[in-house]
Amino acid sequence: MLVCGETACIIRDDSITASKRHRRTMSGFSKLLKILGVIVFAVVVGAGSAWWAILGSVKVSGVQNGAWHTSTAIGSTASGPYMRAQIALTGLLALNKSEAIYFLASEDDEGRPLTGACDYEVTGRNFAARWWSITAYGSDHYLIPNDADLYSYNVASLGIRFAPISKWRINVSVQEQASNWLPVATDDAFSLTLRLYNPSAQIVTDPAAVGLPAIKRLSCRATTGTGATPGLTTDQEAAS
């Protein structure tokens, strides 16, 4: 009995120790999981919210004018941390408003994202600035490769440098256009930047009141995914 008792005691002791060890292991494992969860949450939510806040900073704090938006804080020392980060990612080395104002459009006049799957006409008049240009950029924010090496139009190439009230039109499309063709890439999102160098004092003080170009979607190429030749549909057809 004594032996048994000792044996029993020994066995009972081992059982308690093993149980404690198991509980401790589970507790340690649980703590590790929680730490891991905190880290994953912090990285995903922290970095994700930062990314969302940075890319939305211009729209939130900037000036919206039709399909175009800008911020007069671009490039200046008054730029907040979100604006600075946004500029670093999408417009590094941008000048301050005393030298240039940048308007950016990534949607058409009806708020639909600009895409190479559709054709657009961009129309407007001359601006009260020393020089201006409209440039197309791919979703990577670089110039869009094309055989014609056409990336932008400006007050001179549109032939209205000395015609302040003339209207102009740019045709944005994947396919070559008869006049003022601005090529974009098939099925890739794109955006337009309007640069006004040495803008008038009126533009600097009230960029929301500038008559900016209209961006109208004309037609879109429908892709069937069955190998059929892509065709053009008008907005109404595409919507129906």
């Binding site: 949450f41 912090a42 922290g46 806040a53």
Partner: peptide, 16 residues
């Protein structure tokens, strides 16, 4: 988790 996410958010914005 919330405090850590806030710190990551601030650091990311300042580091970009």
């Amino acid at each position: 988790a919330i405090i850590s996410a806030f710190i990551v958010h601030i650091v990311a914005v300042l580091l970009v």
